[in-house]
């Protein structure tokens, strides 16, 4: 979180809405630990990461939906996750994310 504060604060000064996606749990092997955070501005700009680059694209799409009024949500990506079989961690683990608007 610390490393993305400058980006978040810059976006907010510019009047952008921001969503935060945070790794809350990890099963098996995964590159980022709980607490890893990615911030997404409403224009699609991104700061930080939640994996080694495997799922970031899908997380941005979810975050933009959240900012569009879709509601905060839990999202999971795993190698054999049926709901997200097209996107997953190549290392075989499952990562659980909480995505929410920065309104707190």
């Amino acid at each position: 979180m610390r490393e993305i504060l400058d980006d978040i604060e810059r976006w907010r000064r510019l009047g952008r809405s921001v969503a935060l996606a945070r790794v809350i749990d990890l099963e098996g092997s995964g590159p980022r630990m709980p607490g890893a955070t990615m911030a997404v501005a409403d224009n699609g700009e991104v700061a930080g990461s939640v994996s080694g680059g495997c799922v970031e694209g899908a997380v941005v799409a979810e975050a933009l939906e959240v900012l569009d009024g879709g509601g905060r949500r839990l999202v999971s990506f795993g190698y054999s996750d049926d709901e997200a079989f097209a996107v997953g961690l190549t290392c075989g683990g499952t990562v659980h994310l909480f995505i929410e608007p920065l309104d707190w």
Binding site: L5, E9, S17, V18, A19, V66, G69, P101, D103, W104
Partner: peptide, 19 residues
């Protein structure tokens, strides 16, 4: 929901987190 994340929303907890 969308209104909550609109520009200008106060964010007391996040501001404290950042600080």
């Amino acid at each position: 929901m969308a209104a909550d994340s609109a520009p200008g929303t106060t964010t007391p907890i996040f501001d404290t987190v950042a600080s």
